[in-house]
Design a protein around this nucleic acid. Structure first.
Length: 497
RNA sequence: GCGCGAUUAGUCUAGUGGUUAGGAUCUCGGCCUUCCAAGCCGAUGACCCGGGUUCAAUUCCCGGAUCGCGCACCA
């Protein structure tokens, strides 16, 4: 088959090799916004999670897991019920949907103020006799479009599937505070599903209705935010920052700037928040996303979520979809804990400094990754076609198979037997080995290249004489001879590199 | 959600109101093979779903699902 260097080759690889399938359920025609991972995709995802969990442990974060369904009051308190429900008006003839607030803003700029109720908007529409721009039919009632998925629990109690994991983590604050023995900052992360009822999901796994989040939270005092010890360890790190002032000037040139300078220049306000940007950057780079394809883009004030004081997106440049957000870093202030304190009638004020009389509601800094977006961007940015050869040059730790073992030819019983024996020995050592004897040797190498397997071991005629095998490296295709007895140890050592 | 276009094996595609629905590639089996998708033989595998028109629909019509593009939406 002629391999063309285009995005279609990549897209078909995702399906062909069992990374991502969908929309699911495919046999029933599919349901937009829902996808499944095949064995290769799931192995990759688990390998990413292993690394993320290991790094989180290194940075001092503990892990929690919360229910994905929560009662209405939680979402009232968090502000999602208010902010995630959009008022819309629908034309009775052409069925076109408009955002009611935006429509009014455009058509009656003088009459509209922030935060109009549904009723007030309806009155305005009636008073000024607003009609559909296409059909000239008068609009009638305002409907709501809810971005949260609603469900009912028990005896028709309304509940919602969480639109983010973060809120469910905050609900544990009392417990976490005890658990951490009131030592601040408290660092916690949660991995799990979140759900959003997207109006029209597109772009495959980049905008799903059910997706995985990996969110880190830091509960911290105002004083510690400004005087954050760990900042000193990372202050000389240079990050590609694009602040919103620069964006307003229509300048998208990315300047790598040290965090220290970013604070001094006022691009960033808080050292603790700067530290969060570093963690986001570190976790992205460690997976092997090429540096020139990474940038941080600051949200403008209008773009920010309802809870955010400052927000930067970590974006990856893709071939197919342009810059894609894979991580949002938000300064959520004390907004969430204050709201939950109010709605739950709990007291979340704690003393966080040396003076035990001074109490405050902790500030929250959040680093929120979309795992599915990481998987997509990681695969896309590591996919290359080199002289007609597909090579998925992902970090060897992430590859679904660590090594593959081949008999040079399959019709020589001795060679095949030895190959199987070596494959089993690697498995005994808990090395993720894959055995393949089908087709020519070259074809088997190419199959593994498509999956990103870093090393292929081939057993040939010489192996029968002197107990050596060849090991072939994915990117260079170079081969070396190794002794069978040292194989497992050498692979283990390479895995650590 | 609106408008336009599309949907045929795992993947990429050809084509038709009555066809054994064609090809390429993949996959599997056999032969061969002393290292990078070689060759030969054989095999498996498809008309998105529902309804209508028709003697007959994968093909025409209507509805739905999904995908692509534009608009809207993306806290």
């Amino acid at each position: 088959m002629k391999i063309e260097d285009n995005i279609e080759t990549f897209n078909s690889l995702l399906r062909r090799r069992g990374f991502i399938w969908g929309p699911s359920p495919e046999i029933y025609g599919g349901f937009a916004g829902f996808y499944s991972y095949g064995p290769a995709g799931m192995a990759l995802k688990n390998n990413i999670l292993d690394i993320f969990r290991r790094e989180c442990r290194y940075f001092g974060f503990g892990e929690v897991e919360c229910p994905t369904i929560m009662p209405s009051i939680v979402w009232e308190a968090s502000g999602h019920l208010e902010r995630f429900i959009d008022p819309v008006i629908r034309c009775n003839k052409c069925k076109t949907l408009y955002r009611a607030d935006k429509f009014l803003q455009e058509n009656l700029p003088d009459q509209v103020r922030e935060g109009l109720s549904f009723k007030e908007m309806e009155i305005l529409i009636e008073k000024y006799n607003l009609t559909c721009p296409k059909c000239d039919i008068p609009f009638e009632r305002i409907e709501e479009y809810n971005l949260m998925l609603k469900t009912s629990v028990g005896n028709n109690t309304i509940a919602y599937l969480r639109p983010e994991t973060a809120t469910t983590t905050y609900l544990l604050f009392n417990r976490l505070n005890q658990d951490a023995r009131r030592q601040y900052p408290i660092k916690i992360f949660q991995f799990g599903k979140a759900y959003r009822n997207e109006i029209s999901p597109r772009q495959g796994v980049l905008r799903m209705r059910a997706f995985d989040q990996f969110e880190l939270q830091i509960f911290i005092s105002k004083e510690l935010e400004m005087n954050f010890e760990e900042f000193n360890e990372v202050k000389n790190e240079k990050l590609p920052l694009l602040d919103w002032k620069q964006q307003e000037k229509d300048d998208s040139k990315i300047n790598a700037i040290s965090l220290d300078n970013a604070i001094k220049n006022g691009i960033l306000k808080k050292p603790a928040y700067a530290y969060c940007l570093f963690i986001g950057y570190h976790l992205t780079k460690i997976l092997g996303i090429p540096e020139p394809l990474i940038r941080f883009r600051q949200h403008s004030i209008n773009e920010r979520a309802h809870y955010a004081d400052d927000a930067w997106d970590l974006e990856i440049k893709t071939r197919q979809f342009g810059w894609v957000e894979i991580c949002g870093i938000h300064d959520r202030t004390d907004y969430d804990l204050k709201r939950h304190a109010e709605y739950s009638k709990q007291n979340f004020e704690v003393s966080m400094g040396s003076d035990s009389k001074i109490k405050e509601v902790p500030q929250v800094l959040e680093i929120a990754f979309g795992i599915d977006r990481i998987i997509y961007t990681l695969l896309e940015t590591n996919f290359i076609i080199d002289q007609g050869r597909i090579n998925l040059k992902i970090n060897q730790r992430l590859a679904p198979n660590t090594v593959a073992v081949f008999p040079l030819v399959k019709n020589k019983e001795d060679i095949k037997k030895l190959a199987l024996k070596i494959h089993r020995e690697l498995l005994e050592n808990r090395i993720n080995s894959f055995f393949d004897a089908a087709g020519s040797i070259g074809k088997r190498y190419r199959r593994q290249d498509e999956l990103g397997t870093k090393w292929c071991i081939t057993i040939d005629y010489e192996s029968l004489e002197d107990n050596t095998v060849t090991i072939r490296e994915r990117d260079s295709m170079d081969q070396k001879r190794l002794n069978i007895s040292e194989l497992a140890n050498i692979i283990k050592k390479k895995q650590e590199e």
